[in-house]
Design a protein around this nucleic acid. Structure first.
Lengths: 249, 249
DNA sequence: TAGTGGTCTAGACCACTTG
DNA sequence: AAGTGGTCTAGACCACTAC
């Protein structure tokens, strides 16, 4: 079918290759929720037929989204929409306890949770106007009988309204699964920045550490499937328990 | 050519797909130095003919090595063997100076350099027997007129012998390019581990910081193209200048 | 103009998973 | 046995880089 060759010329039409356009179409399906996290997408053959393209091309489009972490291929079973982050991953920065084999989920204690007005910096992160409403949460996390981490969390309020209806006692230990079930938000990506300072008096007392003790501060921006920021979090923990491994190239 | 279909059955023969085998062959060319860093490898068509396979298959093999960071494709020009790391990348952990726009290369001051016997842990890293010879280097790094980092570096000695012939004054500020030019070693990958502690008295004085000041410690294992460890490095710097960004998923 | 990698096709068979 | 993704082929044209 030599006519198809002409279609390739459309390459520059949308400023994107054919498989790029299709990848965008598939991504829209995922972001919109038409294809739910954890579910299988149609088979390659079916998609190829639907879009009127060759198998190799749809495979290339899928490869793009696999690379982005939106899809996951499983031999013989199908291609699946990836579930979001669990949120337990913050513990990767700290090694409490004696052995390094226990990346357990710390118990969460909600210290406070209230609606606030967001200042300019915070509102900008969420793509909201200054003064927009948000949820400010203060949380302490325990490992066995020791307080280990202090967290300050901000969430955009129109989107996370459902959280306010639920009593904090029913939140459980992980925020992200809760955001999924209560608010329908899938946390797909996060950017963590690590810095270092000393603890203020109130922080130190909450963590049972001496005043001015060194602490590591992890500042997290979390994003949903569409790339919008849906959480800003500040986590503080004992600097001497900090340990992180980075692979270069 | 239906006979080629039978060749696919060879898949399990070597426990590797055809493109996997070819990727391994290409990798051997790179690791052995037959294809030098920075040079172009033969064109896809030439390679396909040489191995007697289709274009798509050789492309898949090349894609594997691109993913591994060994090759780099440039549209219209060719496929090139990537040059190794420059080594300047350790500064990504620290933000000295007022603005965050100056990732300058700090000046290197060699404090000491001598041949030593490697203890068990160090020798094991280099794949050498306990007691093998190594080079122990102590280095201080300056930004403008301020000492910023303290480095302890260990290198395996049969391989890095050429360094001993060169007076440290001629080493320059970067170790990896030196390893390349003097010893023919390409540093392809490194693993950095970050922890925090306080400075010992001698360290503090060398860095013009108060005794017991908090410091970040970066422990680096560097590897050559063949995956052998060829450097162990311990870098210490002011914890309050530490800043690192990690992308999750 | 020639050479390179980038995109796309149409169809084949292989390997894995499920019923 | 049927369905899915994984591998491979043979050949076409497109887009970029050089000379």
């Amino acid at each position: 079918m030599p006519d198809n060759a002409l279609l390739q010329t459309t390459t520059t039409a949308a400023g994107l290759s054919r498989y790029g356009q299709i990848a965008a179409a598939l991504q829209a399906k995922i972001v919109s929720g038409a294809w739910a996290p954890g579910s299988a997408i149609p088979a390659e053959g079916a998609l190829a037929k639907e879009f009127g393209i060759a198998l190799g091309t749809i495979r290339q489009a899928i490869a793009v989204l696999v690379q982005q972490g939106l899809l996951e291929r499983v031999q013989g079973k199908g291609t699946f929409v990836r579930k979001g982050l669990t949120g337990a991953s913050l513990m990767r920065f700290f090694r409490f306890g004696r052995a390094d084999d226990a990346p357990a989920v710390p118990r969460s204690e909600i210290l406070s949770c209230r609606a606030v007005r967001l200042d300019k910096a915070m509102a900008t992160r969420f793509g909201l106007p200054t003064g927009a409403r948000g949820l400010a949460i203060s949380r302490r996390r325990w490992l066995e009988d020791t307080p280990r981490l202090l967290e300050s969390i901000w969430l955009p309020l129109p989107r996370c309204e459902a959280l306010q209806q639920l009593p904090p006692a029913q939140w459980g230990d992980l925020l992200y699964p809760l955001l999924g079930s209560a608010c329908g938000i899938t946390v797909h990506r996060a950017v963590d920045e690590v810095t270092f300072r000393t603890l203020a008096a109130d922080e130190a007392s909450l963590l049972s550490l001496p005043d001015a003790h060194p602490c590591a501060v992890v500042t997290r921006h979390a994003f949903d499937l569409g790339g919008s920021c849906i959480e800003y979090r500040l986590t503080r923990g004992d600097a001497f328990a900090f340990r992180y491994t980075a692979d270069v190239r």
